[in-house]
Amino acid sequence: MILVLNAGSSSLKIEVFDENLTSLITGAVTNIGTDGELKLRKSVTQVTALTHADALSLMLDALTEAGFGIDTLSAAAHRVVHGGTILTRPAKVTPEVIRAIESVIPLAPLHNPNNLAGLMALQKVAPELPQYCSFGTAFHATNPDVAIRYAIPQTQHDAGIRRYGFHGLSYANMVADFGDDLPEHLLAFHLGNGASLCAIKDGKSIATSMGYSPLSGLTMGTRSGDIDGAAVLRMSQSLGEEETDRMLNKVSGLQALAGDNNMKTLLQRDDAAAQFAVEHFCYWAARHAGSAVVAMGGLDAVAFTGGIGENAAPVRDRIMELLAFLGTVPVHIIEADEEKQIARDALALMNA
């Protein structure tokens, strides 16, 4: 059995898979640092976990009571948001890999430290248990240089200012889900509170809408999507760097356009602001899609995943309506399952 861990800023989510990638149990510890909950299957317990190590200890105790003790596990596998240019494929955890994850913390200061916290906490509790990592940026390592390079001086490019792309685990899971039926030219949408698209040719990422950070690209729940750098500089001059960052990431997107980042709620509303927000979301998804089709040189199918992609039929329909000029192609809905992909990556490394 493989224990998959996803350590966020204030939560620790887990899922256990068997060798057939069947999910056996799921759980989470919420509100790390204050009063929270431990959820395992359908049970909910009030807990206080001040650190990720505390949360892990509580979760491991609960898993043991449920029959999934450390001694029953073959390995653990972790989600790491950013692998930079060094970690471009899943890896077994070694001191060198840990140092590499630490080295790209400046590229994901809000995520990689938390991902590492879960990894290190488990390493202390079970030092003999093999651990593996999957990286949210790795799937896009196949993008050609012309797709990743900003037209900026070499010194800044060398400093790490380039397009990386995100949601890679979701797209990798989509490719695996298609199996032998994978279309040659697949336009993939991951639509949720965070939204992106990916041009997938022959199973590899050729281009993606997110860039240096998850801020760029499509209109999102609370992120602005693409915005002129000069506009960001002007806002930063009046608001300050920290407030501008908060505004563009936390209170922009659908939230700014209609006062709500919940697509389900917006689709139920009939006011002009909600209708405009939904149209904005669909318009920019389709507009970026045109760019992705150019990047991969054709279109054989479209696939949607993520909370909005899977559940909001009006959004899918409107995006496909805007793309109708490209011709009629099959449309697929794929269940998002990053945890399953992480377990799949670990199994592949274990069996290599």
Rank of each mutant, 00 (worst) to 15 (best):
residue 163 R to S: 11
residue 245 D to S: 03
residue 143 N to K: 11
residue 84 G to H: 12
residue 40 L to E: 05
residue 326 L to I: 01
residue 277 A to G: 07
residue 140 H to N: 13
residue 86 I to M: 10
residue 154 Q to V: 11
residue 314 P to E: 13
residue 311 N to F: 14
residue 20 N to L: 12
residue 264 K to V: 10
residue 68 F to Q: 05
residue 20 N to R: 14
residue 212 Y to S: 00
residue 246 R to V: 04
residue 212 Y to M: 10
residue 28 A to K: 13
residue 176 A to C: 00
residue 169 L to N: 04
residue 342 I to E: 07
residue 306 G to P: 04
residue 327 G to Q: 07
residue 197 L to Q: 08
residue 224 S to L: 01
residue 165 G to T: 04
residue 304 F to W: 08
residue 213 S to C: 00
residue 226 D to H: 01
residue 227 I to M: 15
residue 28 A to V: 08
residue 326 L to K: 03
residue 304 F to A: 09
residue 67 G to M: 01
residue 93 V to K: 06
residue 115 N to H: 13
residue 187 L to V: 07
residue 208 T to D: 02
residue 317 D to N: 14
residue 74 S to W: 00
residue 197 L to T: 09
residue 115 N to M: 05
residue 162 R to W: 03
residue 20 N to Q: 15
residue 222 T to I: 08
residue 334 I to P: 12
residue 60 L to Q: 13
residue 12 L to Q: 04
residue 92 K to Q: 15
residue 349 L to F: 03
residue 314 P to Y: 05
residue 219 T to W: 07
residue 322 L to R: 15
residue 165 G to I: 06
residue 11 S to Q: 01
residue 134 S to N: 04
residue 53 A to R: 12
residue 142 T to L: 02
residue 91 A to W: 00
residue 171 Y to K: 09
residue 98 I to T: 09
residue 77 A to H: 09
residue 226 D to V: 00
residue 218 L to V: 04
residue 191 L to S: 09
residue 3 L to E: 04
residue 146 V to M: 05
residue 33 G to R: 08
residue 249 N to P: 00
residue 219 T to S: 06
residue 209 S to Y: 02
residue 342 I to R: 05
residue 95 P to K: 14
residue 150 Y to C: 03
residue 311 N to V: 02
residue 89 R to H: 14
residue 70 I to E: 11
residue 102 E to G: 09
residue 48 T to Q: 09
residue 100 A to D: 12
residue 30 T to F: 07
residue 243 E to F: 02
residue 65 E to D: 12
residue 10 S to G: 07
residue 59 M to R: 09
residue 205 S to M: 04
residue 310 E to S: 07
residue 1 M to Q: 08
residue 348 A to G: 15
residue 234 R to L: 15
residue 5 L to K: 04
residue 189 F to Q: 12
residue 19 E to F: 07
residue 153 P to F: 12
residue 58 L to D: 04
residue 293 V to W: 09
residue 151 A to Y: 00
residue 145 D to E: 15
residue 176 A to I: 00
residue 211 G to I: 00
residue 269 R to S: 14
residue 59 M to Q: 04
residue 120 M to L: 14
residue 75 A to C: 12
residue 145 D to W: 10
residue 329 V to E: 02
residue 185 H to A: 09
